[in-house]
Amino acid sequence: MSLAMCPLCSDDEDIEVRATLGGGRRMLRHRCGYEWEHRQPPSPQRHTAPSFEVLRARFPKPEDVDPERMERVARLKAQYLEIEPDFDARVAAYWSKYQEVFAPDGLQTCNPQVLKDFANSEIGARPGNQATFNSAWNGMGDAAAAEATRSTIGYLLYGPGEVPLEERLQQLLDGTKPFAMTGFKEALLTKVLCVVYPERFLTILTYMTDAGGKREIARMVYGLELPAPESVSWTRGRLILWSNDLLRGLVGDGFANQQHSAAFLWWAKDRVERCG
């Protein structure tokens, strides 16, 4: 490979390095006798994707909310707790039942119908129409469908410790795990997390929907613009968890449970702009 091209005769053959000057500079001489100083072009920069930690640090934080907006939400919260001081009493018993079902031993021995019922129940959280899941279940049969559902839930909750929950969730959303149950996607995976970690997870089961997911609620209630899920670096798995933690921190305490907190956010999203 030639070193450079002689600027006098535009030939790149028989070029000799006469001296190395440092800083990527060299003194070159062509066979025609012409000498010149040549600077080596810089190596192209490789753009690496931001790390997990960098992206997490960039994600919006509670302190990013305008203080005046927070005051309006606080007034709405006080109003809401006066008219809705508690939440559906059935939820606690239902959550307790499925916490036992989703424990490692319970997951392996539970009746298949218990898993199918979970996907279609609206107690405590509404996962929406599960036609894809139900069709897959019916086509596979109870035994095979239950095994796939057990494997999916087990990987989400108890997968390799070195793989963060955000990444396990993304793998199941992408369907890259061969055991993943068809149709057991964002709403149902999030509902599982709500049951097993009831102090952490709000029962808002989608990140972004036309009707309003976590992203829309963050914008409408708190005036925060969260990243679009189309970004490869963010990944939907990360956005689902990080937006939950953000809203959980913003909504604060004083509610009976996280279903109660989520119900307030749904109620507030159409009222905060009108709250003086």
Rank of each mutant, 00 (worst) to 15 (best):
K185V: 02
K61F: 01
W137Q: 12
S151Q: 14
P112L: 04
S243R: 00
G237S: 02
G23N: 09
L173G: 08
Y222E: 01
L156E: 08
E147L: 14
E82T: 13
E230M: 00
G141A: 07
R271T: 11
T48H: 07
G212E: 01
C32F: 10
M27I: 07
L28W: 09
A263Q: 05
R26E: 08
D66E: 12
N134Y: 09
G213S: 01
A92V: 15
E53F: 09
R29L: 13
P198G: 07
D14M: 02
Q130H: 07
G175E: 02
V221D: 02
G276W: 10
L224G: 02
E122D: 15
T132G: 03
E122G: 04
M220E: 14
T152H: 13
G249E: 15
I83A: 12
L21F: 12
R168K: 11
N244R: 01
A92E: 15
A148S: 09
M140E: 04
T149E: 02
D14Y: 03
E147N: 04
C110D: 06
Y158V: 10
L172Y: 01
L193Y: 08
N129A: 11
Q130R: 15
K214F: 01
E186I: 05
G128L: 00
V196G: 06
G223Y: 03
A268W: 01
P164K: 10
P229G: 11
L165M: 13
R219E: 13
P178E: 12
A145V: 11
A57S: 12
A89S: 15
M5T: 14
A78H: 13
T149I: 09
V272M: 05
L107M: 07
N129M: 14
I240S: 10
K269P: 03
K185S: 04
R29H: 00
A131T: 14
I83M: 13
S151V: 00
V196R: 11
R75N: 08
G106I: 00
H260S: 06
K269I: 02
I153Y: 09
A136H: 14
Y222C: 05
D11L: 11
L157R: 12
D86Y: 11
V196D: 06
V17C: 12
G175H: 09
